[in-house]
Design a protein around this nucleic acid. Structure first.
Lengths: 235, 235
DNA sequence: CGACAGGTTGACCGTTATCAAAGATCGTGG
DNA sequence: CCACGATCTTTGATAACGGTCAACCTGTCG
């Protein structure tokens, strides 16, 4: 199941790393190897930072294994979660054209393996393989969509509706009565939805009281009334 | 001063339209003409929609003249302003790779002239001129940055701080004591900052009471105490 | 088993939305 | 050029959503 063991040599790790990234998956083997050769593979323990706000910012990072959260920090130390990255996602793209300095934190949520490419190398690659730009554009488009949606939810909907919207996202296509697993702690979920642990806890409890859901494990939710949740979510 | 009169032929309008767009401005004359020939120029009156939520979504639109606002609509009819476009900006990019259907409204704020290119034509252009992808990527990067910043402001800062932040953005580099002009009505500003007209009005009045600003015209603000505003803005 | 992060629940209070009504400004047509 | 309506803006009073503080509970991991 796991594609990559720690006793493999680094070259292989990098090649595998590159090969799982959607933006590269139309390239030939040789092209991937070429790109892999310009990259560095690094391991991060849970809680370690890939980068922090204020640090110089000149690499593209590709998550190969594990999970990373990106967030901003407010005055009181309160964090706003921007997004969570899974294997194949990349971060640090903003550095390619724009700021020299990050204003966000990227933290490994579990043990994580990341390949990084320096901005100058990536720029060379983009010129050599124009099709990659299109792929990156595609992913950017998706993220922009997500982020703009989040913006309107944050100011048009109350916490209850945002919570319901999020559940609907997780339910995706699945039909009546099924179980979903939160991809993060409720603390992080609260941060993502722009609220607090306490409030998320209250809202989920109220959904449970209404018989819409049942909270089994601390990250497991059994959906009992899809319709009611969807109705709450939309507008 | 104005580059384009309505009695010009359409070809010229389109060429001018293309030529002012930053993402195209490194191309040769002939290349611009080629792109201009695949585009259509349209005029919109104030209040007219370029597109509405739910409509099919298959063009890239380039603002040539005027001003356009893009927003989402909540249940109660409350709108969340996503961004305002000036000449040279483009919209509809999300259609290129992603959704077939818009979930936002694009409305002309004044009389506006727009050139549109169909997605299939643009895709051809992107393949033919790879450097354009890089330019679009650059603009996307900037927008993503802006939008992510907005997200954290919406949930980490209260309205007072968000308002101060926005003023700081407008002040840009200018030193002590100068006048700034809001690029939109306070109503729209309220929408952009995720609050209401009334609250914006109160917050600006309170800034005025403190002697930080003076509200002259309805869109003119004389900045009196840059430091205090900046201090309020950051965290 | 103990410590610690995460989660729940309750009480309280502040910021901000909402409703209402009056005032200012803009654009249009007479 | 003025008058009108429409739209935007201001100000006040009120209510509530949700943040904060505090205490307690729960699960997890060394």
């Amino acid at each position: 199941m796991e594609c990559c063991h720690h006793f493999q040599n680094e070259g292989n790790v990098k090649k595998l790393c590159i090969s799982i990234v959607p933006i590269f998956n139309h390239l030939s083997q040789e092209e991937m190897v070429e790109i892999a050769n310009t990259s560095i593979s690094t391991k991060y323990q849970k809680g370690e930072f890939i980068f922090q706000a204020g640090e110089p910012y000149d690499h593209l990072y590709i998550v190969h294994k594990g999970r990373v959260k990106v967030y901003h920090l407010g005055d009181s130390g309160k964090e706003q979660l921007i997004r969570i990255l899974e294997p194949g996602d990349f971060l640090g793209e903003l550095s390619l054209f724009s700021k020299q300095e990050s204003d966000s934190f990227a933290e490994a949520m579990v043990e994580t393996e990341i390949c990084s490419i320096h901005r100058r190398d990536l720029q060379k690659i983009l010129i050599k393989f124009p099709s990659i730009s299109l792929k990156i554009l595609e992913q950017f488009t998706h993220r922009l969509e997500q982020t703009e949606k989040l913006v309107s939810q944050l100011s048009l909907q109350d916490v209850e509706k945002r919570t319901a919207s999020y559940l609907v996202e997780l339910m995706d296509g699945k039909g009546e009565e099924h179980e979903i697993i939160l991809p993060m702690s409720k603390k992080d979920l609260a941060s993502y939805l722009g609220t607090t642990r306490e409030t998320i806890s209250r809202r989920l409890s109220s959904f449970q009281d209404k018989g819409w859901i049942e909270q089994t494990g601390q990250r497991n939710i059994r959906i009992l009334n899809v319709k009611a949740i969807k109705k709450m979510a939309e507008q």
